[in-house]
């Protein structure tokens, strides 16, 4: 099997799974199933990042999104098991659904025609392919991007304190 065919088969298979997962998040009624569809989506996105050569980001994607954030979502869904609101049975007749779909189609069409279609051929050139390695990312985060790095660590600290305060608060 030639490498081009291998790449293409892998990419279109993974993107099909990712799109199915995204559809599942939006249209499945049970929150647990929606969360599982999102896990599938995040996992395949991690694999697509591997294809793009971003090893470090891909494994962080699987660890952070699929491994931590979605487990937290499932935890909350289970605690709220019987209290989640019923979705409308006639979702497709809902006015909101039709407006949402129309606006999405229009915006997507515009973006695709104006932004994405011109990029189909023009990109692609030689460069150092080691940018996805943990060493490269570590080096850039301690030299060029040291301020963003410190700011996101403060943000995470604020997030931790805020969530503890929300959890401890008596109403």
């Amino acid at each position: 099997m030639s490498s081009t065919l291998l790449n293409q088969v892998a990419f279109y298979l993974l993107s099909a799974i990712a799109i199915l997962g995204a559809l599942g998040v939006v249209f499945l009624k049970s929150p647990v199933r929606a969360a599982l569809a999102l896990v599938a989506n995040f996992f395949t996105l991690g694999l697509i990042y591997f294809m793009l050569g971003n090893q470090m980001i891909g494994i962080s994607q699987i660890m952070v999104y699929a491994g931590a954030i979605m487990v937290l979502f499932l935890f909350v869904i289970m605690i709220l098991k019987d209290q989640t609101p019923e979705e409308d049975k006639s979702l497709f007749q809902d006015r909101r659904f039709i407006f949402g779909l129309l606006s999405a189609i229009v915006i997507c069409g515009l973006i695709w025609a104006l932004v994405i279609n011109p990029t189909m051929q023009s990109f692609g050139g030689e460069m150092d392919r080691s940018y996805g390695s943990p060493q490269a990312i570590g080096r850039s985060f301690f030299t060029t991007y040291v301020w963003p790095f410190e700011i996101i660590s403060i943000l995470l600290l604020v997030g931790i304190v805020g969530s503890i305060m929300l959890a401890k608060r008596k109403f």
């Binding site: 470090m56 494994i59 962080s60 699987i62 660890m63 699929a66 491994g67 931590a68 487990v71 943990p134």
Partner: peptide
């Protein structure tokens, strides 16, 4: 990281 990521999927 692979080991940590996959083991976190065990939940």
């Amino acid at each position: 990281l692979y080991v940590l990521a996959i083991s976190s999927l065990g939940a």
